[in-house]
């Protein structure tokens, strides 16, 4: 930790430089300038080392040990990993978040894309207002979003039930064991679609509109323009969104954690890998195994994203 304390002041001294008077009239040599480049990224590198590299290494280290309630800590080698990848709790949670990703990501993309395309087409006050309102849920913490939807789902006080009862039908309880998948799907879609919509919308706005004119002259309809020109032109925005929603969904935690207590046991302590790791560490005091689960989850996410990047062949867009 001493390193952290001493480096930023050093960075300060160097980068602010001494008064111009002593500086050479011409700029620094390229090598010298390279050193300045390092100084600019130095604060980030420090944080990166302390809060990313070190925890990763530490998790790796912790995961090689095991500690039982009745025994002390012993070296376990890769036992925790063989256990993790045969642990039905972990695998079930992993399968759930993968399944969830497969449904929620396309759903969000479609909502976001359609909304963005419509907003790109329609102008005026309604469009501006809609854009903001659709984006609004992004500003609501996931915890509160889940709480609000939990209330709305309530069979005793929720509007869903009240509206259904007008037609003499019983609304489905969206947190029951069979339905909670959809209940969560709705919460997540509500929360993030607007954010993605804004990204796509901004990308659409940056397209040179003369392309549309040319297409129109060639007799293309609005729909054709949307599908053949606009969508391909914003595809790199898709890649970005996909990567983020994939990373986000695989780490699913807050929403099921908050909805759990009102979901009649549908949210088990191993519902998602993150919830499982949290409970292992903080309810069952198994930090070593929890670290292994965290590490394994991180690995799976990394792998999934990497596979996805290769599959979409958009490597150039992120790997500059």
């Amino acid at each position: 930790m001493a390193v952290i304390r001493s480096t930023p002041p050093a960075a300060l001294r160097d980068s602010t430089g001494v008064p111009r008077a002593t500086a050479p009239p011409r700029r620094r040599s390229p090598a010298r300038r390279g050193a300045v480049g390092w100084l600019f990224i130095l604060p980030f590198l420090v944080v990166f080392a302390v809060f990313l590299v070190a925890p990763l290494l530490y998790a790796g280290y912790l995961s090689l040990y095991t500690k039982g309630l009745a025994t002390g800590t012993t070296f376990a080698g890769i036992d925790n990993y063989t256990r993790a990848f045969t642990d039905p709790s972990f695998l079930k949670g992993l399968w759930l978040v993968l399944r969830f990703s497969l449904v929620v990501i396309p759903l969000q993309m479609i909502v976001a894309l359609v909304a963005a395309l419509v907003l790109d087409e329609v102008t005026g006050r309604l469009a501006r207002f809609s854009r903001l309102m659709i984006f609004l849920p992004y500003a609501v913490p996931a915890v509160l979003g889940a709480l609000m939807w939990g209330f709305l789902y309530s069979p005793s006080f929720g509007p869903l039930e009240q509206i259904s009862s007008l037609f003499n039908v019983q609304a489905p309880f969206l947190l029951s064991q069979g339905n909670i998948f959809y209940g969560l799907l709705n919460v997540v879609t509500w929360q993030w679609s607007g954010y993605y919509m804004v990204i796509i919308y901004a990308a659409l706005k940056s397209i040179d509109s003369s392309i549309y004119e040319a297409a129109r002259i060639d007799g293309a309809s609005s729909r054709q323009i949307a599908l053949r020109i606009k969508v391909p032109m914003v595809s790199s925005a898709f890649v970005l969104i996909l990567v983020f929603s994939l990373i986000g969904t695989l780490q699913f935690f807050a929403e099921p954690q908050i909805l759990g207590p009102i979901a009649n046991g549908s949210v088990t302590p191993d519902y998602t890998p993150n919830i499982y790791a949290f409970n292992l560490a903080f309810a069952y005091a198994q930090f070593n195994y929890a670290s292994a689960i965290s590490f394994a989850l991180g690995f799976v996410v990394f792998l999934a994203v990497a596979i996805f990047m290769v599959a979409t062949r958009k490597r150039g867009s992120i790997f500059t």
């Binding site: 990166f48 990763l56 990567v243 780490q251 930090f287 990394f302 990497a306 790997f319």
Partner: peptide, 24 residues
Amino acid sequence: LTFALVLGAVMVPLTALVIPTFVM
């Protein structure tokens, strides 16, 4: 190389770091 590391880091789920960070 450093920037490639940054990009790799974008893909690391930050919540996976919470528990080891807690112990640290």
